[in-house]
Amino acid sequence: MNKRILAIICLLVALGLLVYWWTTGAHIYNVEQVQVDVVDPLFGTTTKEWKNDFHPGLLGYIGPAVAVFVVLAGWLFWSGRKPKQPASV
């Protein structure tokens, strides 16, 4: 496969990871539990319960993974570029 296409795929994966991170709470650090609302029917109040639900953080897994894919994309672009034609004399 063309290295340029592979590089674009890597960039899309990096972008996808950032979108996933943003939509799952944009946590800076990994989160192992999230709050869920529980309504008390007697008082009509809402209390918080903790539910096990892992969300990778930017400084946990997402950031390093994005960095790897961006570096890989850069290397693929660089290595896949066409050699310059020698100037005709």
Binding site: Y29, V31, E32, W50
Partner: peptide
Amino acid sequence: MKSGNAMR
């Protein structure tokens, strides 16, 4: 006190 992250 809990924040969802054991280290924090």
